Amino acid sequence: MMDKIVMFLKTCEGREGGYGGGPGQLPHLATTYAAVMALCTIGTENAYQSINRETLKGYLKAMKISDGGFRMHACGEADIRGAYCAFAVASLTNLMDEALIDKSAEWLV
């Protein structure tokens, strides 16, 4: 059963990173957060390895805006949810770095 969930979530992964709400849907930080949390909860080697960390990192950086906030999706709104989702995903996948958090504390304030 868990392998079927992992396979389904893999079909939701965007070509350039992040996860959409279903196969072929636009990646969104909220659904990326949900997918990564589900995969980490499953906790199998297969689940962990299904996360393409390279494209995920690119997606997170693409959602970052110059003032330190994060868009929820390409050309989408920026609010506290974006920062939370991006930081939670980056932390769990060991992708947190200085570039990702640059100016974010000031933006949050």
Rank of each mutant, 00 (worst) to 15 (best):
Trp107Phe: 01
Leu108Asp: 00
Asp102Ser: 14
Thr44Val: 10
Cys40Leu: 14
Tyr48Ser: 08
Ala62Asn: 11
Gly58Cys: 05
Gln25Met: 08
Met37Trp: 06
Thr31Gly: 12
Thr32Trp: 04
Arg53Met: 03
Ala86Asp: 03
Ala90Glu: 12
Tyr33Thr: 01
Gln49Lys: 15
Ile42Tyr: 06
Met63Asp: 00
Ala62Ile: 01
Ala90Thr: 09
Leu29Lys: 11
Val89Ala: 03
Val89Phe: 02
Gly69Thr: 07
Val6Cys: 10
Ile5Gly: 11
Asp67Met: 02
Gly20Lys: 05
Glu13Ala: 15
Tyr19Cys: 14
Gln49Leu: 11
Arg15Pro: 15
Ser50Cys: 10
Asn46Arg: 13
Thr32Lys: 03
Ala74Met: 12
Ala74Leu: 13
Lys57Gly: 04
Gln49His: 11
Ala88Glu: 15
Gln25His: 13
Phe70Asn: 10
Asp102Trp: 06
Arg53Trp: 04
Ala35Asn: 00
Asp67Trp: 11
Ser91His: 07
Met96Phe: 06
Ile51Gln: 11
Asn94Tyr: 04
Gly69Lys: 06
Cys40Arg: 13
Trp107Lys: 07
Cys85Arg: 09
Asn52Met: 03
Ala34Glu: 09
Ala86Tyr: 00
Gln49Pro: 00
Thr55Leu: 09
Ala88Ser: 15
Asp3Gly: 10
Ala34Tyr: 02
Leu9Asp: 09
Leu56Pro: 02
Arg81Gln: 00
Gly76Trp: 06
Ala62Phe: 06
Asp102His: 14
Met2His: 09
Met2Phe: 09
Asp102Arg: 12
Ser104Gln: 06
Pro27Trp: 10
Cys12Gly: 07
Ala74Val: 02
Tyr33Asn: 00
Leu26Ile: 02
Lys103Gln: 13
Lys4Pro: 03
Met37Gly: 12
Lys4Asn: 09
Lys103Ser: 08
Thr41Pro: 07
Asn46Thr: 04
Val109Leu: 15
Gln25Ser: 11
Tyr48Met: 09
Lys10Val: 02
Glu16Asp: 13
Ile51Ala: 05
Ala74Ile: 02
Ala105Val: 03
Glu98Trp: 10
Tyr59Ser: 07
Lys57Cys: 05
Val6Asp: 08
Phe8Cys: 06
Gln25Phe: 15
Met1Pro: 10
Ile80His: 10
Gln25Trp: 02
Pro23Thr: 08
Glu106Asp: 11
Asp67Gly: 01
Phe87Gln: 04
Val6His: 03
His73Lys: 13
Asn94His: 15
Ile80Thr: 05
Gly14Arg: 00
Pro27Asp: 08
Val36Thr: 03
Tyr84Gln: 12
Glu54Leu: 04
Ser91Cys: 14
Leu60Ala: 08
Lys10Asn: 15
Ala83Leu: 11
Thr44Gln: 07
Ala99Ile: 12
Gly43Gln: 09
Asn94Ala: 11
Met1Ser: 14
Ala47Val: 05
Lys57Val: 02
Asn94Ile: 12
Ala30Pro: 01
Thr41Trp: 09
Tyr84Trp: 11
Leu92Thr: 09
Glu54Cys: 06
Asp97Pro: 02
Leu9Gln: 05
Ala47Pro: 01
Ala35Phe: 00
Leu92His: 13
Met7Thr: 15
Tyr33Trp: 02
Gln25Val: 13
Thr11Glu: 15
Gly17Asp: 06
Leu56His: 00
Thr31Ile: 08
Lys64Arg: 03
Trp107Thr: 05
Tyr59Asn: 01
His73Pro: 08
Ile5Leu: 14
Lys4Asp: 15
His28Asp: 14
Lys61Cys: 03
Ile42Asn: 13
Ile51Val: 12
Asp79Tyr: 00
